[in-house]
Design a protein around this nucleic acid. Structure first.
Lengths: 135, 135
DNA sequence: ATTTATGCAAACTATTTGCATTGCC
DNA sequence: GGCAATGCAAATAGTTTGCATAAAT
């Protein structure tokens, strides 16, 4: 694994864009200052960095793949209206796999848990509309 | 919502293909006997049928969207090797949303939980390989 | 008759890959 | 120098959309 400027740019972008950026958001961020870096390189480095454990790939249901500078296990909420992703405070369900009654022969390694709902802003907007209708 | 042959074909396909088919698998199934039905129609009907509650859209992390003839809440496992999806027996965590310490203002409606691991077959293959290395 | 649904093609989003070239070690 | 990484373009997977036509009500 070689130490290229591009790899460093990708790592820096994920560390700066703390908000679970998608690959494209990382690319856009880098392209704003380094337009010659290609999308493919961003994708390749994101994959490598997440495989080497420097960043974390998050699979958020209903969303494109996202990358996280935070490594620790925690869960996320996705806004069904605007797509925002938010960290949640819920103790990580460490031994959930063990609770599965395994009649399938599956060897389970882990789980992805994503909540969905309305973020603060979108919930407020929905509230306004409802109020509007009442009058 | 009109009662077209195509809609019926899509519904029937999901009921027959019990194995959480993707939109494309539904399309292929229908196309094998009704080649004139278009992919777009399959997608449109899958969306409508899931919105009207006749079938259930499942968001399985790491997989394309899938459709289920079963409506009841339950969780799934995805094989990281072959992509197979399997129903799991684990009591549905009905009130998980309530356990979230909500500092974000999110209004949570529900959650998607997907386990990942190796299915019986792929686990067996991996075992073989390991055995091979030992000798 | 009206209006929803269809088929087709094109567009779009997200991601990967082949290949010639660049540049790290 | 050798091999990994890059940039580019094309390819792929999954899904949606515009539009003229067909068909359900």
């Amino acid at each position: 694994m070689r130490n290229t400027i591009q790899r460093q740019l990708v790592l820096d972008a994920v560390l700066e864009l703390k908000d679970h950026p998608t690959a494209d958001e990382v690319y856009q961020h880098i392209a704003s200052t380094n337009p010659s870096v290609s999308r493919a390189t961003v994708y390749r480095n994101l994959k490598q960095l997440s495989e080497s454990g420097e960043i974390k790939l998050r699979r958020i249901s209903g969303s494109a793949e996202r990358y996280d500078h935070i490594q620790t296990n925690h869960y996320h909420a996705r806004c069904i209206k605007c797509g925002a992703i938010c960290d949640l405070e819920l103790p990580y369900l460490d031994h959930l796999e063990e609770s599965v009654r395994d009649n399938s022969g599956f060897k389970l390694f882990g789980h992805d848990l994503t909540f969905y709902g309305l973020c603060k802003e979108c919930a407020a907007k929905a509230e306004e509309k409802t109020e509007g209708k009442k009058q």
